[in-house]
């Protein structure tokens, strides 16, 4: 029997959040955390969380499992559970809507700020804008982000200033467009980042790198942005 503690909060009926203890029979199998959540939901349909693809592609089931953020659908119990106890909480730092469902508005607002689309003021070619294989390779490790928010919600700088610090996820995407050979707005993009909060609230704690389920490295991307700002202004 696996001992599971789940964070429960229904703003319509609960005055404050509480932890609910549940026993789950895993049949000795090394299930994914999402499987365990589905088993709990089968018994108590009011238990709420987000999920969709159940294979690490959509990024909707980011949760905090035994203190570490990750995607429940691709996290096997053996990776997080040591003494037969699993604690499930919502991603930290964002307002809770219900149980494990958080309000991601602040996270998306930061993503919107970095203008996550290609900007090019030269006339559009007849078919498409071409890239050399080398230029294309520079986007590797950047474009794969699924915006699950595991990184930004594990970053203390984002907890304290989610309205002013863009956060690791947004900054990884900011660099994805700064590094794109087809984008001509590099200078304008950099100008919008040179304040004491947007980029420079990052203190290199690297929590983001440790939790990214896609194995991406926002800290390195942030370092590249800083070097671009430095090269431009000195």
């Amino acid at each position: 029997m696996l001992q599971v503690s789940i964070y429960r909060y229904n703003p319509e009926t609960d005055s404050e959040p509480y932890m609910q203890e549940v026993q789950v029979d895993t049949g000795g199998k090394d299930l994914m955390v999402l499987d365990v959540m589905e088993m709990i939901k089968a018994q108590d349909a009011t238990f709420s969380y987000r999920r969709s693809c159940r294979e690490g592609v959509c990024g909707s089931d980011g949760v905090n499992m035994n203190g570490v953020n990750g995607l429940a659908c691709i996290t096997p119990l053996s990776e997080r559970v040591s003494d037969n106890k699993l604690v499930l909480r919502p991603l930290p730092g964002l307002p809770v809507i219900r149980d494990l469902v958080v309000d991601m508005s602040l996270f998306y607002a930061q993503y919107e700020k970095i203008e996550p689309y290609l900007q090019n003021d030269t006339p559009a070619p007849a078919i498409e804008r071409l890239q050399s294989p080398e230029d294309r390779a520079r986007l590797d490790g950047l474009y794969e982000c699924i915006l699950c928010a595991c990184c930004s919600t594990s970053c203390p700088s984002f907890w304290w200033n989610p309205d002013r610090f863009i956060g690791p996820a947004g900054l990884l995407q900011a660099y994805r467009f700064l590094a794109d050979s087809r984008d001509t707005a590099t200078d304008a993009r950099l100008s919008k980042l040179d304040d004491p909060f947007s980029v420079f609230r990052c203190h290199g704690i690297q929590n983001c790198v440790n939790v990214c389920p896609k194995g991406l490295n926002p800290t390195r991307a942030i370092g590249h942005i800083r070097n671009m700002l430095l090269a431009r202004a000195t």
């Binding site: 040179d194 304040d195 202004a233």
Partner: peptide, 14 residues
């Protein structure tokens, strides 16, 4: 761009 008038150099980079 986030404004911050009390920071040392007003620019994050500086």
């Amino acid at each position: 761009m986030v404004t911050a008038v009390t920071s040392f150099g007003r620019s994050g980079l500086s």
